Simulated scan of single mutants.
Amino acid sequence: MKQMTAKEVETLLNEGKNLNIVDVREVAEVAEGKIPGAVNIPLGLLEFRMHELDKSKEYTLVCRSGGRSGQASQFLEGQGFNVINMSGGMLAWEGKLEK
């Protein structure tokens, strides 16, 4: 499983890179703030909503601490998606938040 730190993700965004970020936290958690531009697909709904994702794109998966996004990464990799897990999750995120 590919991993990237929260700082690496923040640096790429600050450099103007267009990242496809999927936040797998629950809706109530995301309401407290998410990485700008991130799409929320809670882990429990990922299996049912993965048709919304494009296998030709790379996705960076985020959760609170990195555990759920790690599970999501393994699941999506098994389905043929190109994914990166953001280690440390939102607890390690020091960048801007969108509410």
Rank of each mutant, 00 (worst) to 15 (best):
R68C: 10
E32L: 11
G33E: 11
Q74G: 13
G67N: 13
N85I: 02
I84L: 10
R68Q: 13
N40G: 01
S69T: 06
K57I: 06
K55E: 15
E32D: 12
Y59N: 07
Y59V: 13
L43W: 01
D54F: 00
F75N: 03
M86T: 12
V83G: 00
P42Y: 10
G78S: 12
N82D: 15
K55Q: 15
M86A: 06
G37I: 12
I35D: 14
A38Q: 06
E58G: 05
E32V: 07
G70D: 03
S65A: 13
F48C: 15
S69M: 02
A72S: 04
C63K: 09
R68F: 03
G78Y: 07
F48L: 15
N85M: 01
E47S: 14
V83H: 03
M86G: 05
K55I: 14
V83L: 01
Y59D: 10
V39F: 00
G78K: 03
N82Y: 07
C63M: 08
F75L: 06
L61W: 00
G37A: 09
L45P: 05
T60H: 11
G37Q: 09
G37N: 08
V39A: 05
L43S: 04
T60R: 02
E32M: 04
H51C: 04
V39K: 12
T60Q: 09
Q71P: 09
C63I: 02
V83K: 00
E47W: 10
M50F: 13
G44K: 02
L43E: 03
D54R: 03
M86H: 11
F81Y: 12
G33L: 13
L76K: 07
G80V: 08
L46M: 06
G37P: 08
G80S: 13
V83W: 02
M86R: 07
I35A: 08
S69K: 00
R49G: 11
H51R: 07
G80K: 14
L61M: 10
I84W: 00
R49P: 06
R68S: 10
G37Y: 14
V62S: 01
L53N: 01
P42F: 06
Y59E: 09
P42K: 01
E52I: 08
F48N: 15
I84V: 15
F48T: 15
K55A: 12
L76A: 01
I84Q: 09
P42D: 12
V39N: 05
I35K: 02
S69R: 03
I41P: 00
F75C: 04
I84N: 10
C63R: 06
G70H: 01
L43K: 10
H51L: 08
P42M: 03
Q79R: 08
F48Q: 15
E47K: 15
L61R: 06
L45F: 15
P42T: 05
M86C: 10
M86F: 05
L53E: 06
T60E: 10
Q79T: 05
I41H: 01
G67V: 14
G78E: 12
E77M: 14
